[in-house]
Every structure is written in structure tokens, then in C-alpha cells.
């Protein structure tokens, strides 16, 4: 008898079904539990007050006034960034695109912050 035939002889028809269902369950669990982290909205704060609270469904730009000037926030589907800021060190601009729930960009000199929100957030907040 060939080895493969021997191995297959140990399986009964229902075993294949149980095996397939087990693998499907694992894959489903993987998709269900590890999907977290995709953002579904963003909150912009200026001077500690909520300036805007929107979703990430369509591309647009939002100008936020602050004590130093205007911070420009750019939104694209699923991500957002600080496109321009009058602050001296440009930390929040150089962070680039934020694409995970909980990610934060803070333009401290101009008192503007941007945070992505989402249900399955991996982190309470993310700073760089």
C-alpha cells in the first residue's frame, strides 16, 4: 500500500468535513478578531475644543485656525494627515499619513490635534 493511501485510510468522510470546518473557523476568527485598527472617523481639536468630527469616506481638506495661523488637514478615504502647519518644527506634518484607529498627530505650537477613531482600536492612542 502506498503511504498516502494508508494515511487517507485513517480518515472517514465526516472527518474531512470537520477538518474543513475547523480551518474555516480559524480563518473566520482571524478576520473577525484581527480586523481591528481600521479607522472610521476623525476628530480635530483646536485649542482643546473639538473643531470638527467627521468620517474618512471622501477626500477633502479642512483648514483649522490656531494662534500661529492655519493648520491644513487633508483627508482621503481611510486616512488623514496634517498637510501644512505654521509650527516651527513640523513634527505633525512629518508624521505623514495616519491610517490606524487611535493614531494621533499633535501640532502643539498651533494647538491643533488630529486623532483617528475606530471601534476595534488596537491602541488607546498612538503618538510618534
Amino acid at each position: 500500500m502506498r503511504p498516502s493511501a494508508t494515511w487517507r485510510g485513517l480518515l472517514r468522510p465526516g472527518d474531512y468535513i470537520v477538518l474543513a470546518a475547523s480551518i474555516a473557523l480559524c480563518i473566520a476568527a482571524g478576520f473577525g478578531l484581527w480586523r481591528g485598527g481600521t479607522p472610521d472617523g476623525l476628530i480635530i481639536r483646536a485649542g482643546g475644543e473639538i473643531f470638527a468630527e467627521t468620517d474618512l469616506s471622501r477626500a477633502r481638506r479642512i483648514a483649522v485656525p490656531g494662534p500661529l495661523g492655519t493648520t491644513l488637514i487633508e483627508i482621503q478615504p481611510g486616512r488623514a494627515r496634517v498637510a501644512a502647519d505654521p509650527g516651527p518644527r513640523q513634527y505633525c506634518v512629518r508624521q505623514g499619513w495616519l491610517s490606524r484607529a487611535g493614531a494621533v498627530a499633535i501640532c502643539a505650537p498651533n494647538q491643533v490635534s488630529l486623532i483617528l477613531t475606530g471601534r476595534g482600536s488596537d491602541f488607546d492612542s498612538l503618538g510618534y
Partner: peptide, 18 residues
């Protein structure tokens, strides 16, 4: 209690593992 013609030790093992 599953019909043994269809479900063997491999099924039992998978059920038990889960």
C-alpha cells in the same frame, strides 16, 4: 455519539482540541 461510519478519531481529536 456521532455515527462512527462517518466520524472517526480525527474528528474527535479536532473537537477535543477546540
Amino acid at each position: 455519539r456521532l455515527p462512527s461510519r462517518w466520524f472517526g478519531p480525527v474528528s474527535h481529536s479536532l473537537f477535543a482540541a477546540f
